[in-house]
Amino acid sequence: MAQVTLSRITKRYPGSETAAVDDVSLTIPKGSFTTLLGPSGCGKSSTLRIVAGLSRPDYGVLQMDGRDITHLSAARRNIGMVFQSLALFPHMTVAENVAFGLEMRGIGRSERETKVARALDIVELGHLAARHPHQLSGGQQQRVALARALVVEPSILILDEPFSALDRKLRETMQIELYRITRDLGITAMFVTHDQEEALTLSDSIVVMNQGRIEQQGTPREIYGAPRTRFTAEFMGLSNFLPARCNNRALSFEGLTTEMPAAFEAEGNCTVALRPEGLSLSSTRPEGAALKGHLAEAIYQGASTSYTLDLPSGRRITARTTDCGLLPGQEAWIAWTPEALHAFAA
């Protein structure tokens, strides 16, 4: 296992105005599971391909345990990679697929067989070793790809949206399995996804990327609980953005002034976001900070009801809460739990 460091990595594709990867510096500590998260085209896959050695940066340095590997061929980086398409070799059996990397490293037959058997045991596929990939289910193919990447005892395991083709249930099973295996083996892993839930489930550390740059890096708890930019907040499922001002930790928006939540820092013009799930409605004014609104719409959704409210400023707010019996046309007071209020600069 190794620590991987990216220093000021920049990559521009020919014919493109903007850089796909723009001055990215990042450390993936030994044994940590780090996820690059962002929408398609944000540079996460380009970054991952640079770490894997499948693409060369125009600028910057890539190090593995302090050794410069910027120009080292992918074949010599000792990485294990799981591709989005899985890229299982269709003409080889499961065992041959898994053995391929060992063979390329010149490992003898008997040692190869032992290692392949062990790797297949880890992913619980020992009984399917003689099958060809097309004879396996999607989840089984996934495990073969994982075993093939793990068997070479890689310095870093790289996963490029490996679960995007699976249905939701299978994806959750595979996520749990990947979590178990990487933590059991203490593997350094770099994972790429556009699915925030997946990133929250799997990661020790999440790197949110946008337009080739790192937007924010932190633990899942930090990223979810205290997004520092509007982009991260939106990406983590926040909505109800309201313009605000912050003056010496006094936060005012929509005619209301309240204390700035401890997790956030901003001064001057800033933005407030209210997590829809953390809001509650009532017909009478609650204690503490609250906004008054006009209930425009109530859509019953079973476990919760989605309310749309018009604020006096003309802005709209959505609240998802248990049914409170209010009807469209009525006035309502909106209150929130402390965690539901977020604030960030601009």
Partner: peptide, 14 residues
């Protein structure tokens, strides 16, 4: 993200 102290001086890749 800021460069760590141990990071080498970046240079253009040939």
């Amino acid at each position: 993200m800021a460069l760590t102290d141990t990071a080498p001086a970046p240079r253009a890749a040939p």
